[in-house]
Design a protein around this nucleic acid. Structure first.
Lengths: 129, 129
DNA sequence: TGACAACTACGAAGACCTTCGTATATAATA
DNA sequence: TATTATATACGAAGGTCTTCGTAGTTGTCA
């Protein structure tokens, strides 16, 4: 644990969180097994990362059993929002508008994606009214 | 200089690039003066950063005069795209749709912003047709 | 019980980022 | 010319991130 706000996850931390979000609470062994399918990583590295993440407050540890069980401290959505905020502040002058225009302009959005975005815009219009 | 693709700028590097984008080509002195208005930083730190950035290819150096002149190697838009790509790949499963929905959902977009986004969506529809 | 397997704890190395101090060279000036 | 101001170059410290190896503990099973 620690005081203050939970920091944004780093790269390796994010890859571990992905496993936890996808599979729910996991032992180190579980995390390592899953992670090994994507990256090359030794067991103790996963362990160390999880220990550090627990200290940072990124994950919560249940050490009632011999094999400790870890779970993500917050949802993927929350993490995404934190990372997005950070990038927006650092590189987009804090403007969501800038960022969205960029994302839409340079990356493929399917017709379905665009329809969904329109629906979201519609609902935002209603809120303003 | 160096080979391979130009890496994304780090935090301190981004703050220097902001000065160059805003003011055009600058000497170290110029950059440091501008930067000092926002952060606390010693002259030689700005110098060192610019030297490293030149090595990475983030900035281009003109050393024909005694006070070398640096300029950004690419536009702010290009840098933003690179950073956005990176975040999308790491945290949003490579999906612009996810990212946009998040940005719009959790951050204020003015009616003007939304109108502009709609126009962009319209133009994307035409491209598909 | 003894040997082995699986677990946690932890130190430390190597990479990168940021920062600063010092050394050195060059221009400007009294 | 001698002094002072301003430049660049560069080494190194301190921080974080990631990685791994080793030590020590606990459970399992023949």
């Amino acid at each position: 644990m620690r005081q203050g706000p939970i920091p944004n996850p780093t790269d390796a931390e994010l890859s571990i969180l992905h496993v936890l979000w996808r599979h729910g609470p996991c032992t180190v062994r579980d995390v390592h097994t899953q992670l090994s399918r994507k990256r090359d990583m030794v067991y103790t590295t996963a362990l160390k990362l999880l220990q550090i993440m627990a200290e940072k407050g990124l994950v919560v540890r249940d050490d009632s059993a011999r094999a400790h069980v870890y779970r993500a401290a917050y949802s993927e959505e929350t993490a995404q929002r934190g990372l997005l905020d950070d990038l927006m502040r650092r590189a987009f002058d804090g403007s969501a508008h800038n960022l969205v225009m960029h994302a839409l302009g340079t990356h493929k959005a399917s017709p379905e994606d665009r329809a969904e975005i329109r629906r979201l815009l519609d609902s935002l219009e209603e809120e303003d009214a």
